[in-house]
């Protein structure tokens, strides 16, 4: 599990202040918040890209606060895919495996189940520049998961995609989460995405944690933050066909009292029991 204790990061314009958060092993955890809330900084602090000013980060009990990124075994998938443009799809996915030779992984072999799940075999010899956005994001997912990270961070992985790919990717994310049992920590400002995928979620705003809990808890017990910045929320994703439609106008309270009806039956807010038991049993904590 990831345990963040009183974390502070100071990057001048952007700050995190005294943030504490616990994410269970195997959980699909979503971080929400408006633009500039500090979501991406939190991810960068977890992966080791920004210096931590105070507090600690633990991963399965190990203190990783000041470890270099390559020693943390935490994967990341960015909104803009960040594929290596000079390498083929195969070389992209195999990139991290060469550094795991010590761990007994043959770096020439790609994980077949991952390729099959993401339907990547036909693309292996192509270069990233020739792929669609959806294909590129699938490659990025495969590349990150090919090294079996302890946690996968996803920084708005769907927001650069057009709606038809977004639904497809959401499907792959759910599938991969269930198959690999990896802890997923995803950042989004899209409400529908959070509803469709999160087992638990946290809301951060202006560098502070506002609320954390299951989607139901959060949407049933609106806290003070909602009235202050919900008006600036980006609702793009709410328009996608499978997502609950939410209409919103700034002056009224953004979360209607009859909130439960907005959670669709069988949404990811209540994960299938099979996967639940699987990741609970894998939990080393």
């Amino acid at each position: 599990m990831i345990s963040i204790r009183n974390l502070s990061v100071d990057l001048g314009d952007f700050q995190l202040r005294d943030l504490s958060l616990e994410i269970a092993s195997g959980e699909f955890f979503i971080l929400m918040g408006p633009t500039g809330a500090g979501k991406t900084i939190l991810l960068e602090a977890i992966i080791g890209l920004v210096p931590v000013a105070g507090g600690e980060i633990f991963l399965d009990g190990d203190r990783i606060t000041h470890l270099p990124p390559e020693k943390r075994q935490i994967g990341i998938v960015y909104q803009d895919y960040a594929l290596f443009p000079h390498l083929t799809v195969r070389e992209n996915i195999a990139f991290g495996r060469r550094f795991q030779a010590a761990a007994g992984v043959k770096n020439s072999e790609l994980p077949a189940d991952l390729l099959a799940t993401l339907e990547l075999e036909p693309l292996l010899s192509r270069y990233p520049g020739t792929l669609s956005g959806g294909e590129q994001q699938r490659v990025a997912l495969a590349r990150a998961l090919a090294v079996s990270p302890r946690v996968l961070l996803l920084d708005e992985p769907l927001s650069a995609l057009d709606p038809r790919f977004r639904e497809e990717l959401r499907h792959y994310l759910r599938l991969l989460h269930r198959q690999t049992g990896t802890t997923f920590l995803m950042v989004t400002h899209d409400f529908a995405e959070a509803l469709a995928l999160a087992e638990r979620l946290a809301v951060i705003n202006r560098g502070r944690l506002e609320q954390a809990g299951t989607p139901e808890e959060i949407f049933r017990q609106p806290a003070a933050w909602k009235s202050t910045w919900a008006g600036k929320w980006n609702w793009n994703g709410a328009a996608s066909p499978s997502a609950p439609r939410i209409s919103f106008s700034a002056p009224t309270p953004w979360w209607p009292p009859a909130s439960r009806t907005l959670l669709p039956a069988g949404s990811a807010a209540s994960p299938p029991p099979a996967s639940t038991t699987r990741w609970r049993s894998r939990s080393p904590t």
């Binding site: 960015y78 290596f84 590349r143 990150a144 090294v147």
Partner: peptide, 27 residues
Amino acid sequence: VSPRLEAVARSLGASGRQTFFLVTLPL
């Protein structure tokens, strides 16, 4: 060369030096 490419390489286990020679320099 996007710093994100380097960030991804580091997250995949490449050291700073390996990242420079495998990602930054070729690009």
